[in-house]
Nucleic acid binder design. Structure first.
Lengths: 89, 89
DNA sequence: ACTCTAATTAGATGAATATCTAAATATTGA
DNA sequence: TCAATATTTAGATATTCATCTAATTAGAGT
């Protein structure tokens, strides 16, 4: 886990909102995009950053890409900062 | 608490390292700066961002400025993201 | 008041980020 | 194979960020 990539990823409000939406369950790229006043290409860039951080996983279903939350990465990163030992690179 | 300011603040590895150093106890600006290969003005900018996020508090002692960790802000912000309810602005 | 030390603010610069429009890719179904 | 749908990649631009050097502020001691 690249801890720095994770913290970079969650530094943007739109990306945190994406994670929050995915807590309710997996969702397609288009459905997620519908929750924002941003173009799909812009959202796609945000998805990529979340995927690079392994905060989400993606699965293709037909023409749609379904995004899933990977909660454990989030927990690991945040508990690292909250806990005693240093995990900052 | 401006949640976005908090997540912005902890997105940079140097600032996370500062927080980690302060877990051991309060420390002066100069002492903190000694832990990094960066100039003092650069560190000063990082301190300001942590202070804006209220992640640290500052107290003057003579010519020194002593930084203290404010752990509760960190806990609030991170548990907001980990928990069920959305706190993203 | 002067000087020393500690730290900050100001100003400049190069790199990174977020966003858009336009074009490309992938999958499905007629 | 052609067309439609879903999504991404490419390229451009404006803004923000991290960093440096130089100058400034604040306090303590002589």
């Amino acid at each position: 886990m690249r801890i720095n990539t994770v913290f970079e990823a969650i530094s943007h409000p739109v990306r945190r909102q994406i994670l929050t939406l995915l807590k309710a369950g997996p969702m397609s790229a288009g459905e997620l995009a519908g929750h924002f006043d941003l173009t799909k290409p812009t959202l796609s860039v945000h998805f990529n950053k979340l995927r690079d951080a392994e905060l989400v996983a993606v699965e293709r279903r037909g023409t749609s890409l379904i995004y899933h939350l990977n909660m454990s990465i989030l927990e690991e990163a945040l508990s690292g900062l909250l806990g005693k030992k240093d995990q900052t690179p």
